[in-house]
Amino acid sequence: MASRRDFLAGLLAAGAVPRPGWAEAGAPDFLAAGRRGSGDYVLCGLRASGDLAFEVALPGRGHAGAGHPERPEAVAFARRPGTFALVIDCRTGAVLARLETPPGRHFMGHGTFSAEGRLLYTPENAFDEGQGRIGIWDASAGYRRIGEFWSGGIGPHEALFLPGSDVMAIANGGIDTHPDSGRTKLNLPVMRPALVYASAAGEILETVDLPPEWHLNSIRHLAVRSDGLVAAAMQWEGDVAAAPPLLMLHRRGQVPSFPAFDPAGHRAMQGYAGSVALSGDGRIVAISSPRGALVQSFETATGRPLAAVAQADVCGLAPAGEGLLLTSGTGRIARFSGAGAETLAEQPVAWDNHVVALNRAGSRPG
Rank of each mutant, 00 (worst) to 15 (best):
E299P: 00
H157M: 09
F54P: 03
S279R: 05
V295L: 06
L11H: 09
A286P: 03
W351T: 07
G182N: 11
K185T: 02
V196M: 03
A277L: 13
G155V: 04
R79L: 14
E237R: 13
V224K: 08
S218Y: 08
I170K: 10
G292P: 08
L188V: 07
I219F: 06
V208Q: 13
F77P: 06
R71A: 15
T122F: 03
A301M: 01
P69R: 14
L306V: 14
G147M: 08
R105V: 00
L278C: 15
S49P: 04
A231L: 12
A361C: 07
D29K: 02
T207S: 15
G39M: 02
S328D: 08
S226A: 15
A232R: 05
M269W: 02
L188C: 05
D262L: 03
S297I: 07
H354K: 08
P305K: 02
T92P: 05
A350T: 09
F113N: 00
A273K: 01
S279L: 06
L46A: 11
Y121Q: 06
V276D: 05
D40R: 15
E24H: 01
V314Y: 05
C44R: 01
Q235I: 11
Y143T: 03
E206H: 13
A350F: 02
A78V: 05
L120M: 06
T300S: 15
R220A: 07
V314Q: 10
P290C: 07
R98G: 12
G65Y: 02
K185S: 01
V87N: 01
D227C: 09
D176Y: 14
P290Q: 11
R19W: 00
R252S: 15
P103L: 02
A307H: 13
Y272N: 05
G15M: 10
A159N: 08
E73C: 00
I175G: 05
Q131Y: 00
Y197M: 12
G155P: 12
H221S: 10
V356F: 03
L358D: 02
G155K: 04
Y121G: 09
A233V: 03
A223K: 05
L326N: 05
A341G: 09
A277G: 09
A308D: 06
P163S: 11
E100M: 05
A312M: 11
A159E: 01
R267S: 13
M108A: 06
L229F: 06
P365A: 10
D176H: 12
L11R: 12
L58E: 09
R91D: 08
I287H: 03
A32M: 02
R80Q: 10
P211R: 14
P20A: 14
G109L: 06
A286S: 13
E342P: 01
L210P: 01
N353M: 05
V230S: 03
G15N: 10
L216Q: 15
T83W: 01
A293Q: 13
F7Q: 13
A198G: 11
E148L: 01
